[in-house]
């Protein structure tokens, strides 16, 4: 079932155009957004999350009429983890997640506890954010995105700064959420893509140049050896084009 429809999306900063007419349909399940540095991954996620107003095109959520990112009520259905999440250092972990829930209009009183549990931060719920390590802060930010179980979850480089155990836990969380929501994970690490599986979308120079499964990307290479070879071959093709 398609949850998020993106049509002709254009986005940029100043005179430079970063996204050049993106068309996407996001279904329930896991989607990895892959691309080199500067390909437009973060810009795409921020635009889908309502953080940036699109220059052109539309984003619509489920059956709702209208543009999701311009219709504030639709943003309740989108959870977003920023690449460099900044949390108010003076607030406790629980207060921050409660604030995120309030901002998203989440009514369920148990939602905050559930989100903290999902990221294994229940025991630190009373700690102030300024006392947390970088990895813990990222998990709190993830709880803010997860709270209320939105039908669309956008995660920008979620595993950066996490230790190996936390990465494994996060992958489990993402897979579980992806059973009932459209989850987009942005990354430039092929190992992460291989571990997560699901659908892969490759962004190159602000345009979608590949949309298929992990296996599809692997077999894109000349000898179907590895994901790296498939990705490198795809980039060569795009550059020569």
């Amino acid at each position: 079932m398609t949850i998020l429809h993106v049509r002709g999306l254009e986005q940029g900063y100043g005179r430079s155009l970063v996204l050049k007419g993106i068309d996407l349909d996001l279904d329930v399940g896991l989607t990895c957004l892959l691309g080199l540095n500067g390909a437009g991954k973060t810009t795409l996620l921020r635009t889908l999350a309502g953080d940036l107003a699109p220059r052109a095109g539309s984003v619509s959520l489920g059956d709702r009429a209208g543009d999701a990112v311009q219709d504030r009520a639709s943003l309740a259905g989108i959870g977003y983890l920023a690449q460099d999440p900044v949390l108010p250092g003076h607030m406790s972990v629980r207060d921050v997640v409660e604030y995120a829930a309030w901002l998203k209009g989440v009514q369920d009183r148990d939602a905050v506890g559930l989100a903290l549990e999902q990221v294994s931060m229940s025991s630190q719920a009373r700690d102030r954010c300024r006392t947390l390590s970088g990895g813990m802060r990222r998990r709190v930010a993830l709880a803010c995105a997860l709270v209320g179980l939105p039908p669309v979850l956008l995660l920008d480089e979620p595993t950066v700064g996490l230790d190996p155990e936390q990465r494994l836990q996060l992958r489990d969380v993402v897979r579980t959420v992806a059973e009932s929501a459209a989850v987009v994970v942005s990354t430039h690490e092929l190992a992460e893509v291989a571990a997560l599986g699901g659908r892969v979308i490759v962004l190159f120079d602000g345009a979608v140049v590949f949309s298929d499964t992990v296996e599809g990307l692997r077999s894109h290479g000349p000898d179907s050896e590895s994901l790296e070879a498939g990705f490198a071959h795809l980039l060569r093709q795009e550059r020569s084009a």
């Binding site: 999440p85 003076h90 309030w102 209009g105 803010c144």
Partner: peptide
């Protein structure tokens, strides 16, 4: 704002 990203992507006015 102490939590800019959260407030920018808020669905609440």
């Amino acid at each position: 704002s102490p939590a800019r990203t959260l407030e920018r992507t808020s669905c609440r006015g």
